[in-house]
Design a protein around this nucleic acid. Structure first.
Length: 416
RNA sequence: GUGGCCAUAGUUCAGUCGGUUAGAACGCCAGGUUGUGGCCCUGGAGGUCGUGGGUUCAAGUCCCACUGGUCACCCCA
C-alpha cells in the first residue's frame, strides 16, 4: 500500500460513525439548551490570525502549526484551535452590533503537527463555545457549567475541574515580575526548559511537570494572592457560583494553559482514565483578544473540548449507542421477482422506510444472512407465489415470529 | 523534535535452537434435499511474513537501514 492517510490522521469508519453522530447530537442538545448557536468558520486562516491571537511564544504557534504558502504567496494555517477564527468572524461580520452578547458553538476538526500518541492526533476534533460580549463572572460560570453538563450527559462524573485566575493586564505583569525575580534566585537548579521560560513566560515554570521544579517552586508567590481588586472579586464570584450550583472544583494556582490570550478565569477538565493526555477540556476568559485582533475591546469567555478524548472515556465506560437498523430487508426468492423487489425497495424508501435488498444476485440463504447481519427488523421473501397472491410472510427477526401481510401494506406493517 | 516497544491472512495473534508445502481463532464465501437468518456441522478463498540490504548451505526467525504503527517526553484537546 503506497497511499496511506497522513500520520496522525484517522478515518472514522462506518463502524464508528454512528457513535460520532450520537455524541455530536448530545453535544448539540446541551448547546441548544444553553442557547448557543452554531458557527462554522473556514478550516484554514491566514497564519497571522493564529500567531497574533494564540501568542508567538506558545508551543502551538512555535512548533505545532500546519502552515503552508499558497499559490498566491500567502501564508495560511490549518486552524489549531477554534477561538481565534470565531473572534475573527465576530469582528469581521460585526456580530456584536446586532446584539450585545453573542453565544456561539462549534464542532470541528483542528490540526496540530505533533508526534501522535494516545489521545493526540494531528487532525483531531473539538467542540467548544464562546460567549462574546459579557464581562460578568456569571458568564464564566455558564461556560464552565455547560462543559461539565456535557460530560454528565454521557454519564461521565469522574473528572476534575481545576480553575485559576491568571489576572488581567494590570495585575498579571506585576505578578510576573515578582515571580521572575524569585525564580532568578533558583534559576540554576531548575530544568533547562524552565530556565528558558523565566524570561518569556515565568508562570509556565510553575506549570512545569518536572518534579524537581515543582518542589523548588512550591513556596513561590501564587497569582491568586496577587490579583488586583477587580480580578479577585471576579474570581471569588466564580467560585461562589460554582459552589452554589453544586459543581465541584479545585483551585489550582499553577494552572496557566498554553494560550496567551487568557485573562482572569482559566479552567481545565481532566480525567484520570486517559493516561498521559488527561485534559478533556479547557477554557477561560479572554477580555483582550478582540481588541488584539483589531476589534473593539470586548470581554469574552469560552472553552474547547477534545472529542477523541471524550470517546476514549466513553469506551472505557463501555458506552454503547443503539445501532442504526433497516426496518425491512426485501429478499427475492427467484430471479423473476428481483424487478419487483428492487422497485419496491425504492418506493418504500421514498415513503420513509429504511429498506435494504440484495444487490449481489445471491441465494435466498445468503440474503437471509445478509438481513441478519444488517440487523434488519423484518424480512419479507417475495417470489412468484407471493406476487401472484399479493401477500407474503413478514418475518420479525427479533422475536422470530411470522405473519401474513398484503404486499401493498408493507410500509405500515414495518413502520409501526 | 527526542526516546522505548512493535510490524506474519480482513482482524486478533501463534510460529520452538535458523531447516521441507507459514498456522489458529474470529470474520468472509459456499453447502448441509424443493423457498427463510442467528447456533451447529462440512468445505473453500485469503499471506511478496512492512520495505531494502546483509550474514548463512538455508532467514518469518539473526544483523543493519528505512518506512509505518504505538507508547512516553515536551505540550496540549
Amino acid at each position: 500500500m503506497i497511499l496511506k492517510s497522513i500520520k496522525g490522521t484517522k478515518d472514522i469508519l462506518p463502524s464508528d460513525s454512528s457513535r460520532w453522530q450520537y455524541v455530536e447530537q448530545v453535544v448539540r442538545g446541551v448547546f441548544h439548551r444553553y442557547n448557543y448557536k452554531e458557527i462554522r468558520t473556514p478550516m484554514f486562516e491566514l497564519t497571522s490570525l493564529f500567531s497574533r491571537s494564540i501568542g508567538e511564544l506558545t508551543d502551538i504557534v512555535g512548533k505545532e502549526m500546519y502552515t503552508f504558502t499558497d499559490r498566491s504567496g500567502d501564508s495560511v494555517t490549518l486552524r489549531p484551535e477554534g477561538t481565534a477564527s470565531v473572534v475573527r468572524s465576530y469582528i469581521q461580520n460585526n456580530l456584536g452590533e446586532a446584539q450585545p452578547l453573542v453565544k456561539v458553538y462549534y464542532i470541528a476538526p483542528m490540526f496540530r503537527q505533533e508526534r501522535p500518541q494516545a489521545g493526540r492526533l494531528r487532525q483531531f476534533h473539538q467542540f467548544g463555545a464562546e460567549a462574546i460580549g459579557s464581562p460578568t463572572p456569571e458568564t464564566d460560570v455558564e461556560i464552565i457549567a455547560m462543559a461539565a453538563e456535557i460530560y454528565r450527559q454521557f454519564g461521565i462524573t469522574n473528572f476534575t475541574l481545576k480553575i485559576n485566575s491568571v489576572g488581567d493586564e494590570e495585575c498579571r505583569p506585576r505578578y510576573k515580575e515578582l515571580l521572575r525575580t524569585e525564580l532568578m534566585t533558583i534559576a540554576d537548579q531548575l530544568s533547562v526548559e524552565s530556565q528558558k521560560r523565566i524570561e518569556q513566560n515565568p508562570m509556565r515554570v510553575l506549570d512545569s511537570k518536572d518534579e524537581k521544579d515543582l518542589a523548588l517552586t512550591k513556596d513561590m508567590p501564587r497569582i491568586t494572592d496577587h490579583l488586583n481588586e477587580e480580578c479577585a472579586v471576579h474570581f471569588e464570584r466564580v467560585k461562589e457560583l460554582l459552589t452554589l450550583m453544586g459543581i465541584p472544583f479545585v483551585v489550582d494556582p499553577r494552572l496557566v494553559r498554553g494560550l496567551d490570550y487568557y485573562t482572569k478565569t482559566a479552567f481545565e477538565l481532566t480525567s484520570d482514565e486517559l493516561g498521559s493526555q488527561s485534559a478533556l477540556a479547557g477554557g477561560g476568559r479572554y477580555d483582550l483578544l478582540t481588541q488584539e485582533l483589531g476589534g473593539k475591546q470586548t470581554p469574552a469567555v469560552g472553552f474547547a473540548a477534545g472529542i477523541e478524548r471524550l470517546m476514549m472515556v466513553l469506551e472505557k465506560n463501555n458506552f454503547t449507542v443503539p445501532a442504526l437498523r433497516p426496518a425491512l430487508f426485501l429478499a427475492a426468492a427467484d430471479e423473476a421477482s428481483r424487478g419487483w423487489t428492487i422497485v419496491t425497495t425504492m418506493e418504500l424508501r421514498s415513503r420513509g422506510v429504511a429498506v435494504e435488498t440484495d444487490f449481489l444476485q445471491r441465494s435466498l440463504k445468503a440474503q437471509m444472512r445478509e438481513a441478519d447481519r444488517q440487523l434488519a427488523r423484518h424480512v419479507v421473501v417475495v417470489g412468484a407465489h407471493e406476487l401472484a397472491a399479493g401477500r407474503a410472510t413478514l418475518r420479525n427477526l427479533d422475536d422470530h415470529t411470522n405473519r401474513e401481510v398484503e404486499l401493498g401494506l408493507l410500509a405500515d406493517a414495518v413502520m409501526r
